[in-house]
Amino acid sequence: MSVTHDEVLKIARLAELEVSEEALPLLAEQMSRILEYVAQINAVPASEGVKPFVPGPDALRFRADEVKPIPLAFGPETLAPAFKDGFFLVPKLGAFEGADL
């Protein structure tokens, strides 16, 4: 399971992580090694068709529809690195625009 530099870069773009030129070879090598190691689970044929297991309650519980927000000890203006007139500020959107839903 060898991961190419290009694949690492593609994944890094999806994850919005900057990967430097220098870090790339070691990262690709380590990822390859880890993926090779974890891929051994594909050697277990018995797992085909098994229903996935997730711990915790069997079914979702619901809360009542009432306005009852969890209080904040201080507001977004204190949290935010950039905030103005009630808005969070980020640098202008470059390559992408319009929300995806």
Partner: peptide, 16 residues
């Protein structure tokens, strides 16, 4: 999702 306002501030996107 929330709302992005692109023309409220120059060079910045405002998020509500």
């Amino acid at each position: 999702a929330g709302k992005s306002l692109h023309d409220r501030f120059p060079k910045q996107t405002a998020i509500d």
